[in-house]
Simulated scan of single mutants.
Amino acid sequence: MAEQTIRVQLSETKKEKPKSDQLIFGRAFTDHMFVMDYSDPLGWHNASIVPYQPLSIDPSAMVFHYGQSVFEGLKAFRTKDGDIQLFRPRKNFERLNLSNDRLCIPPVDEAFALKAIKKLVSIDKEWVPDAEGTSLYIRPFIISTEPYLGVAPASHYKFIVILSPVGAYYKEGINPIKIAVENHYVRTVKGGTGEAKTGGNYAASLKAQELVSKDGFAQVLWLDGVEKKYIEEVGSMNVFFKINGEVVTPELNGSILAGVTRDSVIELLRHWNIPVSERRISMEELREAYLDGTLEEAFGSGTAAVISPIGQLTWEGKDMVINEGKTGEISQKVYDTITGIQYGTSEDPFGWVEEVEAKTTVK
């Protein structure tokens, strides 16, 4: 896509900002949003930052009927010096285009998308909270808008970015959560859309999540969709297990999302010379490790929660209490390091953070 300008229309009114200690994940939204259109043969065009507002979409828009949509999630953080920075945003847009390809959506210019997000965050910089553990969640997404009821890739799309000030994703925070292993329902299979970040994957997970939440579980751990034997991922997180001194995470097999935080955890562990492997791991292997005392730690990783220690796994009616239900040493170290890099309190030897230009000139 050729470089284009971003038209800016500032809101004439400002919303009341929620207090930092009252933030609920994904409930409040900032004053502005980014919108860009796609159509044949123009390509992506009409890039604009406008006041946050409802969308006007035809009832026959293909997204409502065939689910052609993708999204991403990343965050902006305010440092102790008042600067605003992003964490590995280029990885998010790289993954967005992989999702686009799987859903037959035209790719976006990754550099331009990053430029648009920086400008949007700069305009709404007052919404970036500064309390400990808070951030500005960034949600880019693309939907098919062509008014047509034929089953085919659409020829019209909208690329939208909205912003939301957030606190902790789980009410438990960094404290261990309870996870139920799902044996009945299937989220996705190799060859499906599991490695894409598309809404249908999450819709497919809701039933199992609804059922286990009644028993106090925070999330579902999904097994492979064919044999229902091998561990894949938690509903909103990738997953790691420390077994006999080695950290193991399920390998990317076509049905697991390649998490940005997952990649960061693996890089950190290798940087610390902690043994880490990406491979198939079955629930039977995990249960054996639990029974013989070599399952030392478990945690999930994701943009929303960063790191969530797993204090209990329940499979086939039996509870596995991991590390006495306490936060493990590696879980805590990874969490402290990643959040330290994100908030600018720790060294960033990997070049993961990108500064947002707080004094961007709005034209």
Rank of each mutant, 00 (worst) to 15 (best):
Y148K: 10
K363C: 12
V161L: 01
G293K: 05
L86R: 13
V321R: 11
K91I: 09
L114S: 08
M33Y: 01
K363P: 14
I174E: 00
E16W: 10
G225F: 00
T361D: 15
F77E: 02
S60P: 13
L286D: 06
K229L: 08
Y335Q: 00
C104T: 12
K242W: 04
R262Q: 03
G191P: 03
E251M: 07
L268T: 01
A204Y: 15
F77M: 11
Y169M: 11
S255G: 14
K19F: 02
L269M: 10
K19E: 04
E285P: 02
A298L: 09
S255L: 08
F25N: 08
R279C: 15
L291M: 10
L114N: 13
K119D: 09
K190H: 04
F141P: 02
P147R: 15
R102A: 05
I231A: 15
L120C: 14
Y169P: 03
K119F: 09
Q219E: 01
G302S: 11
W315N: 15
F159D: 03
F350D: 00
V334A: 01
E110T: 03
L163Y: 04
V128W: 11
T261Q: 01
L206F: 12
G82F: 07
K15M: 10
D348R: 06
G235S: 12
P140H: 09
D101W: 00
Q219Y: 12
K207A: 13
R280M: 12
A180P: 13
K318W: 06
Y169I: 00
A61F: 14
L98Y: 08
V63F: 13
R88H: 04
